[in-house]
Deep mutational scan, measured.
Amino acid sequence: MKHYEVEILDAKTREKLCFLDKVEPHATIAEIKNLFTKTHPQWYPARQSLRLDPKGKSLKDEDVLQKLPVGTTATLYFRDLGAQISWVTVFLTEYAGPLFIYLLFYFRVPFIYGHKYDFTSSRHTVVHLACICHSFHYIKRLLETLFVHRFSHGTMPLRNIFKNCTYYWGFAAWMAYYINHPLYTPPTYGAQQVKLALAIFVICQLGNFSIHMALRDLRPAGSKTRKIPYPTKNPFTWLFLLVSCPNYTYEVGSWIGFAIMTQCLPVALFSLVGFTQMTIWAKGKHRSYLKEFRDYPPLRMPIIPFLL
């Protein structure tokens, strides 16, 4: 059985960083990364991007050496992705923050609204209902991160945790300040508006959870398998008939419901920014589905049925 020789060059300087002799033909890129780490321990596998061309796409960890368009002496180019952190850690951090930050404003801890309001309670029912909904949303997200989601990528750049936390924590503080303010004004149409908004919120939260469970069942634990998601017997998953990412559709719907319930401008802005970002993600995933699966359902749109 022939063996391969693998040289790894710096993608920027073309400097030879490592030479691997007698590499098995069936070795994966993940195994080559581990061998590279032995000579350069500062670059652990998650930091490494190996590619066939200095400006090309990163090879997948599961790619097999003998199936790549290389000879028995293969040249790979290395790029440092920077310090990495696990997706689970990032999600837990960015979701735990809003949960606790919101509660600080809800309980009106000292130095927020003035001494005479310390630890007082709002007289408006919608304020307490909003706290329950907000807390439920982020507790749900935390539990899904721990027990439901299966991540195709193990890590992301460390800098992302600061960007994500600034976004989630900042908006949580902004909306919580106004919703729990002693001078907060309840919704214009009173109980009817709150009940309608609560119904929207609850339905969308159930829908979002149902989609996450359906997506989880598509991917076996520990794998990166991708399949076309289809509706199940659960009615909340029937939205798969019309959109590629109904989890985002339901998520946006939840925040629209919360915005109607609280009639709070920061919540509306958070919903708008979230919708914009999720639309970008949904379009990317939709394109990926179309590219990977020739039999992908043609009627589906990325996030909004028939429109977007």
Results as ranks from 00 to 15, higher is better:
T185L: 13
W255G: 03
K195A: 14
A96P: 12
M213T: 10
Y230G: 10
I29M: 05
V88T: 15
W169T: 02
I29R: 04
H181R: 09
L20P: 04
C18F: 11
Y289S: 14
W174E: 02
R226W: 09
A30E: 10
Y178A: 05
L196R: 07
T39N: 11
P182H: 00
A214V: 11
R123W: 06
L35H: 09
Q193M: 01
N208C: 15
A173M: 14
F119S: 13
P235E: 01
E251G: 02
A173C: 11
L241R: 11
H153K: 00
A173V: 09
L146A: 06
G222E: 10
G114C: 08
F201D: 03
Q66F: 11
F171M: 13
A83D: 00
W169M: 00
F201S: 06
H181Q: 02
R219C: 00
I304M: 06
S152F: 11
I132W: 14
S49A: 14
K227E: 10
D10L: 00
D80C: 15
V194M: 08
L239I: 05
A30I: 02
F258C: 11
F19W: 06
Y248N: 10
H134Q: 05
L20W: 12
K163W: 04
L35C: 02
T93M: 14
W238R: 08
H153Y: 11
T145E: 04
G190T: 13
S135E: 04
H3I: 14
M213P: 15
L103G: 06
T188S: 12
E144W: 10
R108H: 13
I280K: 14
L146M: 00
L272T: 01
R14K: 09
Q192W: 15
Q48W: 10
A282V: 04
K291W: 03
K38L: 12
K12C: 06
A27R: 01
L239C: 03
E94M: 08
C131Q: 13
P302F: 10
F258S: 04
M156R: 02
S210D: 00
F293V: 13
L299R: 03
F236K: 04
T155L: 12
S152Y: 02
H212I: 12
A191K: 00
K16V: 04
I29A: 06
N34F: 04
D217H: 14
V202Y: 06
F111E: 06
C18D: 09
A172I: 14
Y102G: 04
R141C: 03
Y248H: 08
R226M: 07
G190W: 15
I256P: 02
I29W: 08
T237Q: 15
S254H: 10
I256T: 11
Q48I: 01
L59F: 01
I101Q: 00
A176N: 14
C18T: 14
Y189Q: 11
D63R: 13
H212C: 15
F36K: 01
A176R: 02
R287I: 13
Y296S: 11
L20E: 05
K38P: 04
C18N: 13
I228M: 06
C133K: 00
I8K: 08
T75G: 05
D10V: 04
V90G: 10
N247Y: 09
Q193D: 12
A27P: 04
I29P: 08
C165T: 15
N247T: 10
I132S: 05
D118L: 00
V267H: 02
V109E: 09
H149K: 00
F105Q: 01
L65Q: 06
W238C: 11
H128I: 13
C18I: 05
C204F: 06
T185R: 05
L76P: 06
F36I: 00
V127A: 09
L76F: 14
Y189H: 09
F306V: 07
W169L: 06
F100K: 07
I303Y: 01
Q277R: 06
L52R: 12
I200F: 12
C131S: 07
C264S: 10
R216H: 13
H137S: 06
L103M: 05
M175V: 10
P231A: 06
V126I: 01
L196I: 00
T125L: 00
C18Y: 08
T93L: 13
T13K: 07
V64I: 07
W255N: 15
S210P: 03
R51D: 00
P229R: 13
S210W: 02
H40C: 06
T249N: 08
G190E: 11
L35N: 01
E24R: 14
C264T: 11
G170L: 00
S135C: 10
D217A: 14
E31P: 01
P246R: 08
D21V: 09
L158R: 15
Y184V: 00
W43I: 05
L9D: 13
R300P: 04
L99D: 12
F105G: 15
A11I: 05
K12A: 13
Y248T: 15
Y102P: 04
G207T: 15
D10H: 13
L299V: 10
V243I: 15
Y44K: 08
T188N: 02
F306G: 01
L265R: 04
H124Y: 07
F171K: 04
T75I: 09
T120Y: 12
E31R: 06
T279N: 06
D80Y: 07
V202T: 03
Q48P: 12
F240Y: 10
A197V: 09
L239Q: 05
P69A: 08
E5F: 00
F209H: 03
Y138T: 14
E62K: 12
Q48H: 08
P302D: 14
N247C: 14
L20K: 02
I161T: 09
T37K: 15
G207D: 01
I203Y: 15
T93Y: 01
V70F: 04
Q84M: 05
Y178V: 06
L50D: 11
V127K: 01
N34G: 05
L35W: 05
Y102C: 02
K2P: 10
T120N: 05
P110N: 15
I304N: 08
I139M: 08
R287H: 08
P229K: 07
G257A: 14
V267I: 03
T39P: 08
Q48G: 00
Q192E: 13
Y184G: 15
L241M: 06
A172T: 10
A83P: 12
A96V: 09
C131E: 00
L242V: 05
S244P: 03
L265P: 11
F171R: 12
I139N: 14
F136P: 15
S288I: 09
A199V: 12
Y177F: 07
S121Y: 04
K55C: 14
Q192H: 10
T249I: 07
R47C: 10
M213A: 09
F111L: 11
P231H: 05
C18P: 12
M278L: 11
I304V: 10
K195R: 11
I132N: 03
Y296L: 03
D53Y: 07
G154C: 08
T120W: 14
F162C: 13
E7Y: 14
I303R: 02
T188M: 14
T262G: 13
G257N: 09
N34S: 11
E7Q: 12
P186G: 02
A30G: 11
A282P: 03
Y230F: 12
Q193G: 12
V252G: 11
W169F: 00
A214N: 15
F258K: 00
E144Q: 01
V194Y: 15
L50S: 06
R79H: 11
T188A: 10
G114L: 15
N160T: 00
F36V: 05
H128R: 09
P187V: 14
C18R: 10
F100Q: 03
Y296I: 08
I85K: 01
F105M: 00
V109I: 02
A259E: 14
L17R: 11
F78C: 01
K2G: 09
Y95M: 03
T276P: 08
C18W: 05
Q48T: 11
R47P: 12
L196A: 07
S122R: 08
V194R: 14
G253D: 01
D217Y: 03
L146G: 13
I112V: 10
W169R: 03
N164C: 03
R108I: 13
A176L: 03
V23Y: 00
G56R: 02
W281S: 05
K224H: 04
G274V: 05
W43V: 03
P235R: 07
M156K: 01
Y138D: 02
V243G: 07
A172V: 07
T225Q: 12
Y95I: 02
W255C: 05
V194D: 00
Y95N: 09
C264G: 10
N208G: 10
P45R: 08
K60V: 00
I228L: 10
K2V: 10
P235T: 04
H134Y: 05
D61G: 11
K2S: 08
